[in-house]
């Protein structure tokens, strides 16, 4: 059956999510987040003092440090840049000029979709630190294998999907705002028509993730 996946999931099914809040003592906020076997820990420091060379006079400097799992050292620079972009877009950086918000991301286990894991962990850690956000955000990834969409691919599926892997970070909808993508990363060729369906799938998946993050925080 075309629907069945290695781990028995349906094509549009996310892996079970798990998270932990405020698990570190030293940082101002911390959280871990996992999709199945993929797991990431994020710590947030700030707003705190910033070296003069990186100081910005009207906003906080966002710095993301990405520590890869030992067997996965590729793409750390790109992924940390994307995470930084998301934080810059949604944290109230203009409230804290001449300060730094530092996010440290530690990959714990890589089984695909690390960027999505990291962005979700970052959202939780920022909320734990009490840094103002204009909206909650969440991320999910989607792969196209032999023309079929599969949500939240594992590492094996991700490597098999030479067509496209898209990770989208989505600002969640509210009464006065519609949901919108703040960051998007894709690799491999994709027809515009297919891209539309991929994005729709990712967007609805992020809504499910955001609902999970929300319940986690409210507990």
């Amino acid at each position: 059956m075309a629907d069945a996946r290695v781990d028995g999931r349906k094509a549009m099914e996310l892996r079970p999510m798990q998270c932990d809040l405020a698990l570190l003592d030293k940082p101002d906020g911390s959280a871990s987040f996992s999709f199945g076997d993929s797991s990431v820990m994020a710590a947030v420091y700030g707003p705190r003092d910033v070296p003069l060379s990186r100081e910005k006079h009207d906003r906080s400097t966002v710095e993301v440090a990405w520590h890869s799992a030992p067997d996965n050292e590729q793409g750390a620079a790109l992924q940390s840049h994307l995470t930084e972009f998301v934080v810059n877009a949604l944290a109230s950086i203009h409230d804290f000029p001449r300060s730094a918000i530092r996010v440290v991301i530690q990959e714990l286990n890589n089984d695909g979709g690390m960027l999505a894991c990291a962005i979700n962990a970052t959202c939780l850690a920022l909320m734990d630190a009490g840094i103002s956000l204009t909206a909650m955000f969440a991320a999910a990834s989607c792969a196209v294998v032999d023309g079929q969409l599969i949500l939240d691919p594992t590492l094996i599926e991700q490597n098999k999907a030479n067509a496209v892997v898209v990770t989208g970070a989505c600002k969640q909808a509210s009464k006065v705002n519609a949901a919108e993508f703040v960051a998007l990363h894709s690799s491999g060729p994709c027809a515009p028509k297919q891209m539309v369906t991929v994005l729709e799938a990712v967007e609805s998946a992020t809504a499910a993730v955001a609902a999970f993050l929300r319940t986690a925080k409210s507990k």
Partner: peptide
């Protein structure tokens, strides 16, 4: 007034004061 929440926590109101009560370290 239409207000937007920026930090997670419990929404509280006393008379005409509204605020969000969160648990923060910083």
């Amino acid at each position: 007034a239409m207000l937007q929440v920026v930090v997670p926590g419990d929404l509280r109101r006393k008379g005409n004061m509204v605020w969000v009560d969160g648990v923060h370290k910083r």
